[in-house]
């Protein structure tokens, strides 16, 4: 698995220009120089608090947002060695990759058009990518995928409002999976669901990954969910990756102060298991991403900051095998 990664994201930037009256133009740097790589068949978790740019990464990767800078090298199933830079493709050349790379959205209530039936929702992708020769054939494909995601095939004639949140999310998943994708970007697919349903949907995603040989970029803020489903995890803070490691390694040996703060925020149910005094609470709020200074992004909230952190910005370095961290403590 450690061969060459299936997805390589280099120096991804997404800035939103802001107009602020008479002042000079400023930029909201939602994503500011992110490097990620995802191996084929794995699940990479992307975690971070609200507003750190996780969702922006997901949406930029499928070009709903136009990237400001960066490369997105994709080595799909049958494309030649070396991969394709998705960001450099024109919309027409991008088309096959719009099938290959799918997204599962966060809000199951907003992600299904309330005015068309489940059949029409799912068949749209099939029509766009000319899959299924006839209406009948598409129908039986839809029946198949609905069963696969745990819904009754006859539900295809219903409208989205007739379903619960969990069922709606299954419809959203079916819509993506029927296109037989390689990479699926899951943008907080369970955060809008209640806990019992979350587990079902997570299991469904794992089953589908196993059956169809998928690769996931799993965006989430719930660390328990991430720990369960992900092979590796990248921690994001204010538009940058601060640490990337395999799941066990990250949870056992977090290097970046932000990661350890994040991990110690997980509530421990058993009071005897709590490590008293070892909790590193991250104080304060996430600073504004509008024109942030060129220092370490975390310096204002970091319990272990020293003078170098205020002067320059650290870059992501591999400190041990497969463990990347962006912090001067490990320089």
């Amino acid at each position: 698995m450690k061969a060459s990664p299936m997805v390589e994201i280099k120096n991804l930037k997404k800035w939103f220009p802001m107009k602020s009256g008479f002042k000079s133009k400023s930029n909201l740097k939602a994503v500011d120089g992110v490097d990620l790589h995802i191996y084929g068949g794995e699940t990479l978790g992307l975690v971070g608090e609200s507003g750190c740019g996780k969702t922006t990464i997901g949406r930029t990767l499928i070009k709903i947002y136009e990237p400001t800078d960066g490369e997105f090298l994709y080595r799909g199933g049958d494309s030649s060695e070396g991969g394709v830079d998705i960001f450099s493709l024109s919309e027409s050349k991008m088309r096959p990759f719009r099938r290959e790379i799918q997204m599962v959205f966060q809000d199951p209530y907003a992600s299904l058009n309330p005015r068309i039936t489940v059949h029409d929702i799912i068949s749209e992708g099939l029509r766009v990518h000319s899959m299924g020769k006839s209406r009948e054939e598409r129908k039986s494909m839809i029946a198949g995928i609905l069963e696969k995601v745990g819904l009754r095939p006859e539900y295809m004639y219903r409208y989205p409002h007739e379903f619960s949140g969990g069922q709606r999310q299954r419809i959203g998943i079916a819509r993506s999976m029927i296109l037989n994708p390689g990479l699926v970007i899951c943008d907080e697919p369970v955060s809008a669901l209640d806990v019992s349903v979350q587990a079902q949907v997570i299991n469904l995603l794992e089953d589908l990954k196993h059956d169809f040989g998928l690769t996931y970029l799993f965006i989430a803020h719930d660390l328990a969910v991430v720990k369960h489903i992900c092979d590796r995890i990248s921690v994001m803070y204010l538009g940058r990756i601060v640490e990337t490691a395999e799941t066990d390694q990250l949870f056992d040996n977090p290097l970046h102060p932000y990661t350890s703060g994040l991990l110690s925020s997980i509530p421990v149910p058993n009071p005897h298991m709590r490590k008293i005094g070892k909790r590193e609470i991250v104080k304060g709020d996430i600073p504004s991403p509008v024109d942030p200074p060129e220092t370490c992004r975390f310096v204002k909230r970091c319990p272990r900051a020293f003078d170098r952190c205020c002067k320059e910005s650290p870059s992501l370095r591999e400190v041990s095998d497969g463990h990347f961290v962006s912090c001067f403590l490990y320089d």
Binding site: R59, I62, I64, M94, R95, R98, R99, Q102, M103, F105, Q106, D107, A110, S111, L112, N113, P114, R115, I116, E124, G125, V128, H129, G172, R175, L179
Partner: peptide, 26 residues
């Protein structure tokens, strides 16, 4: 800006069809 329009875009549905199919009915 709704997610169902984003989803249609992400799948490569053309603008004309998005307007007729997703925006107009709403």
């Amino acid at each position: 800006e709704t997610e169902y329009v984003m989803s249609a875009r992400a799948m490569g549905v053309r603008n004309g069809r998005i307007i007729l199919r997703h925006v107009l009915p709403n």
